[in-house]
Amino acid sequence: MTPILELPAPLDLPDGTPEVTVILIAKETIPGRVKTRLHPPLSLEQAAELAAASISDTLAALAELPAARRILLFDGVNAPAGSEDYEVVPQVAGDLDERLAAIFDACSGPTILVGMDTPQLRASDLAPVFETWPTDIDAFFGPANDGGFWAIGMADPRGDLIRGVPMSRADTGRIQLDRLLDAGLGVHLLPALTDVDEIADAHLAATLAPHGSFAATLESFAAVAR
């Protein structure tokens, strides 16, 4: 497949640091288009503001990591603040599996993709990805509490290992992990994180990361969020 984007040369990194491409998949935080399952109790405007805070916290965590390349796989027009050093790549048309597969087909070398919906993410959760990958580890996988996944990475990115996986289901994570294992890949499991879908998830994520923008934003909605 022809690459979506001609990526810049990797950055100069300390000796021994693998040249990892980090991809953040995100959607523009327009009321009524993001986090609609938080409405009610939140208004659509509040849900969008909380989604923006989640992206902000995620970008802050990723900023601590020594990525050689940074890609924002974006659905929207106005990229979020904090993503100025990211190459912005529009998401292709199609279901989520097709969008993820397309960007993996466009990359080469160690690549990790993370979502925008786990604001409790810490740089330490992804630290193993930025160490020298053992010869028996071909992929990294971060399960989410809702049965999906918040991160997927491969030493040799292959879209065919994602394409066709049914998304947004309680068994999505299991099916995706099985796809990697059935391909003979050695998989390192990253910590399980809370994917914010419902208001209870939002409160749990805020409890786990009480000092982030997400928690502060949710607290500002306390009168209507509980």
Results as ranks from 00 to 15, higher is better:
Ala200Glu: 14
Gly142Thr: 14
Leu121His: 04
Gly115Met: 06
Asp195Arg: 12
Asp156Met: 01
Leu50Ser: 10
His203Ala: 11
Asp125Cys: 07
Ile71Trp: 08
Glu87Gly: 09
Leu161Thr: 03
Pro66Leu: 08
Asp156Tyr: 04
Ala81Trp: 07
Asp197Pro: 01
Ala60Phe: 02
Arg99Ile: 05
Pro41Asn: 05
Glu198Met: 10
Gly32Asn: 08
Ala206Trp: 05
Arg179Leu: 11
Leu50Tyr: 14
Asp195Pro: 11
Ala67Val: 05
Thr207Pro: 02
Ile137Asn: 07
Phe214Glu: 05
Ala206Glu: 09
Ala93Lys: 00
Leu96Gln: 14
Asp156Glu: 15
Leu189Val: 09
Ala202Val: 12
Val89Met: 02
Pro191Met: 13
Val22Arg: 10
Gly82Gln: 10
Asp138Pro: 01
Pro8His: 04
Ala170Arg: 15
Leu126Arg: 04
Glu98Ile: 13
Gly115Ser: 10
Leu73Gly: 09
Ala202Leu: 13
Ala192Thr: 10
Leu44Trp: 01
Leu24Gly: 03
Pro128Cys: 03
Ala79Ser: 05
Ile4Glu: 14
His188Ser: 14
Ala52Asn: 12
Leu190Pro: 00
Arg226Ile: 06
Arg69Phe: 00
Leu193Ile: 15
Thr135Ile: 13
Gly212Met: 02
Val114Pro: 07
Ile199Gln: 00
Pro143His: 00
Glu98Thr: 13
Asp156Arg: 10
Pro41Tyr: 08
Glu45Asn: 11
Asp15Arg: 11
Ile162Ser: 09
Val196Glu: 10
Ala139Lys: 00
Ala144Tyr: 09
Gly159Glu: 09
Thr111His: 01
Phe149Gln: 06
Trp150Met: 15
Glu87Leu: 02
Val34His: 11
Ser43His: 04
Ala223Thr: 03
Pro40Leu: 08
Ala215Trp: 05
Asp12Tyr: 00
Ala9Met: 14
Pro191Arg: 13
Glu49Ile: 04
Leu38Pro: 01
Asp146Thr: 13
Glu19Arg: 00
Leu218Asp: 07
Ile199Glu: 07
Arg33Met: 15
Gly159Ser: 00
Pro66Asp: 12
Asn145Trp: 04
Thr172Met: 10
Ala51Phe: 05
Leu65Lys: 08
Leu38Phe: 04
Leu126Tyr: 13
Pro8Lys: 12
Phe130Met: 01
Ile55Lys: 07
Leu181Asn: 14
Ala192Ile: 11
Leu50His: 13
Ala63Met: 02
Gly142Tyr: 03
Pro31Trp: 12
Pro40Ala: 09
Asp195Ser: 14
Gly173Ala: 03
Asn145Val: 02
Pro143Val: 11
Asp146Cys: 06
Pro31Lys: 03
Val92Met: 06
Leu5Cys: 15
Leu7Ser: 06
Pro191Ala: 14
Phe221Gln: 15
Ile103His: 10
Gln176Asn: 06
Asp146Tyr: 13
Ala183Tyr: 11
Ala192Trp: 02
Ile71Val: 06
Asp178Phe: 08
Met154Ala: 15
Asp178Pro: 11
Gly94Phe: 09
Asp117Asn: 01
Ile175His: 02
Pro3Asn: 01
Glu64Ile: 13
Val77Ala: 15
Phe130Ala: 13
Met154Tyr: 06
Ser213Lys: 12
Asp136Gly: 04
Pro10Ala: 05
Glu87Tyr: 13
Ala209Tyr: 00
Gly76Asn: 07
Ser108Arg: 10
His203Ser: 15
Leu121Ile: 03
Arg163Ser: 14
Pro14Gly: 15
Ala81Asn: 11
Asp12Ala: 08
Thr172Ser: 12
Gly32His: 04
Gly142His: 12
Leu73Phe: 08
Ile175Trp: 00
Leu44Ser: 12
Ala206Asn: 04
Arg99Phe: 01
